Simulated scan of single mutants.
Amino acid sequence: MKDFKGKVAVITGAANGFGFEYAKECANREMKIVMSDIDKNDLENATKKIKEMGAEVISVVTDVSKYEDVKALADKTLDEFDSVDLLFNNAGVVAAGPAWELPLNDWDWIIGVNVYGIIHGLKAFIPIMLKQDTPCHIVNTASVAGLLTTPNMPAYHTTKHASVAITESVNYSLQARNSKIKMSVFCPGFVQTDLDNSDRHRPERFKIDPNNPYYESKSYKDGLKRGHHVINTGMPIDSIGQSVFIAIEEEQFYILTHPHYNPVIGKRVKDMLEGVNPSADFFLNR
Results as ranks from 00 to 15, higher is better:
S83Q: 14
S83M: 13
V84C: 05
D85N: 15
L86R: 04
L86C: 03
L87M: 11
L87D: 09
L87K: 13
L87N: 06
F88H: 11
F88Y: 12
N89Q: 10
N89C: 06
G92F: 11
G92E: 08
V94P: 04
A95M: 15
A96Q: 15
G97E: 14
P98N: 04
A99N: 03
W100R: 10
W100P: 07
W100K: 10
W100A: 06
W100F: 11
L102K: 13
P103V: 13
P103S: 04
L104M: 15
L104V: 12
L104N: 13
D106P: 10
D106Q: 06
W107Y: 07
W107D: 10
D108T: 08
D108F: 08
W109N: 00
W109H: 05
W109G: 02
W109P: 12
I110T: 14
I110Q: 15
I111Y: 08
G112T: 02
N114T: 02
N114P: 06
V115G: 06
V115I: 10
V115S: 13
I118N: 05
I118Y: 00
I119V: 10
I119T: 07
I119W: 11
I119K: 10
H120M: 04
H120R: 01
G121V: 07
L122S: 03
L122C: 01
L122R: 07
L122Y: 12
L122N: 11
K123A: 07
K123R: 15
K123M: 09
A124I: 01
A124H: 05
F125N: 01
F125R: 09
I126Y: 00
I126G: 13
I126C: 03
P127Q: 07
I128K: 08
I128M: 08
I128D: 03
M129D: 07
M129V: 01
L130P: 05
L130V: 08
L130D: 11
Q132V: 03
Q132D: 13
D133Y: 02
T134F: 02
T134A: 06
T134Y: 01
P135Y: 03
H137F: 03
H137V: 00
H137K: 04
I138Y: 00
I138L: 01
N140M: 05
T141I: 03
T141K: 05
T141Y: 05
A142L: 08
A142K: 09
S143L: 00
S143G: 09
A145N: 15
A145P: 12
A145G: 13
A145E: 14
A145F: 12
L147M: 14
L147P: 12
